[in-house]
């Protein structure tokens, strides 16, 4: 996948470029708004990662100009402005997702891959399976090692999100957004509580270690076993 990163902070550039290269993505960078707009309009990218505040041309203006050319390229906005209204502004200007700095690369990766996949209309999966964990999406039936699990709606949604990203660290913010329609950082253990309930159900079947807590980052669903 080909990604364009428009960002002026060298540390962030290095961090993001290294991360995407390791994941096998092709990433190009532009360090100011004009260069970014030039590249974004003249080349074909699968995703543009755009800093909100750029020298010469502001991120949102760049985005508006890009959209004015009819470009449908997914755009993920990176911003040091964390306020809810800034997020709304970014999405209104034509952004597809919004992330606040500082961020964990793992979360950026999940969001970026989700946006890049959007371009390809995959046949809708009716079943998800990770190791011995199987989820039938139509009947909402979940089995672990052949035994059916009784899950609450929120637990089901959380597990579905984790199963869509096996072996990836998923931040609490991502899980929160996936399950609830409210965008705010609750600074509470609401996600942990639901994960704990889910985990307890796995433990009863002897697979408690399937959902791994990654300190300082989030949760990971292990593929193993």
């Amino acid at each position: 996948m080909k990604i364009l990163l428009v960002e002026d902070d060298a540390t962030t550039i290095e961090y993001v470029v290294k991360g995407f290269m390791e994941q096998g993505h092709n990433i190009e960078t532009a360090s100011d708004g004009h260069q970014g707009l030039l590249l974004a309009t003249s080349m074909k990218y699968d995703l543009v990662i755009l800093d909100r505040m750029l020298p010469q041309l502001d991120g949102l203006k760049l985005l508006a100009a890009l959209r004015a050319t009819g470009s449908q390229t997914p755009v993920l906005i990176l911003s040091a402005l964390s306020h809810v209204d800034e997020r709304v502004k970014g999405l209104r200007a034509g952004g597809d997702d919004y992330m606040t700095k500082p961020f964990a690369f793992s979360e950026l990766l999940v969001r970026a891959e989700k946006l890049m996949q959007r371009g390809f209309s995959q046949p809708a999966d009716t079943e998800l399976s990770v190791g011995n964990l199987v989820m039938e999406l139509l009947t909402r039936k979940v089995t672990l090692d052949g035994t059916e699990l009784m899950l609450q709606p929120k637990e089901f949604q959380l597990l579905k999100y984790l199963m869509e990203h096996p072996n990836q660290v998923i931040s609490r913010t991502l899980l929160f957004e996936a399950v609830w329609d409210y965008h705010f950082d609750p600074r509470t253990n609401v996600i942990d509580v639901h994960i704990a309930k889910l985990r307890r159900k796995f433990e009863e079947l002897g697979f408690g270690e399937l959902i791994e807590t990654v300190r300082g980052a989030g949760y990971r669903l292990r593929q193993g076993h």
Binding site: S82, P102, D185, R187, V214, R215, G216, A217
Partner: peptide
């Protein structure tokens, strides 16, 4: 490192 990241996130949350 993870513990330190958590502490840092707490500071950032206070700022936010």
């Amino acid at each position: 490192c993870a513990i330190l990241t958590e502490k840092l996130d707490h500071c950032l949350a206070t700022f936010d």
